[in-house]
Nucleic acid binder design. Structure first.
Lengths: 121, 121
DNA sequence: CCGAGTGTACTATAACGCTAGTACACTATG
DNA sequence: CATAGTGTACTAGCGTTATAGTACACTCGG
């Protein structure tokens, strides 16, 4: 679950993104407690400071709240659907931008998308 | 043309990617000379060393060749279509992976793609 | 031969992300 | 009160990326 790829950008950002994805998938719900910074750091083989950084980022975005001595929790009032939509559209825009930058159009974007698979190759 | 966004990953990687995109779009052809490191550095408001780094990366990938005292050139034998295809599929796979990570399927990926536009929002 | 343009090779500095380690404050539970 | 679990706040060091500056080697054209 908490597997980190050091090659793909800042670790703290990956952790924050994974939390958002878990919310979008329903594996994490409003009000639920996230793993403690120390626990998640150990599980993901990462420095506790890095997890703290990730949690701070999530709090900055209004997704979590931190209760000193208690832990970090998903806020009760998060709009999960909005988060999913936002992440989804950001990914789609990024893809579309990349395709246009290659001099091709939305049609090509859709076509290639239907042809690829996620595994290597 | 050579506008760099410091927020989006290593500058040298952005420069290398832009060269590949120009190849894919036909704005740069096999045998053509790239701007000198110093010239491109000035135009992109970037350090010459950074451009050298980018060109070295392109050479490592077999896309360019460097002739000392002359400049850096696109190799005559580059397969432009292969580069375009590779970049395109990499983008598509990245998008698809992101959508699947959100707990949705290829159908949703296609649907959202058809709805978004590249400009903000 | 000379000069301009080019790539190459260094040194040094700085910011950022990450790691490592330590100490302290707060909360709940026994 | 004592303890365990938690968040918070530091200091220090490392590697990568980028900047700045300098010097040198090569190629071409005049």
């Amino acid at each position: 679950m908490w597997h980190i790829e050091p090659e793909k950008g800042p670790i703290y950002a990956q952790i924050a993104a994974e939390v958002k994805r878990m919310l979008a998938r329903g594996e994490l719900r409003p009000g639920e407690k996230l793993p403690s910074a120390r626990a998640l750091a150990e599980e993901a083989r990462v420095n506790p400071n890095t997890v703290v950084h990730a949690y701070a980022e999530l709090e900055r975005e209004g997704i979590t709240e931190t209760r000193r001595g208690l832990g970090t929790f998903v806020r009760e009032d998060v709009d999960v659907e909005a988060i999913r939509r936002r992440e989804l559209e950001a990914a789609a825009r990024g893809y579309l931008r990349a395709v246009l930058a290659l001099g091709l159009g939305p049609d090509a974007a859709a076509k290639v998308l239907s042809e690829v698979s996620v595994d290597a190759g």
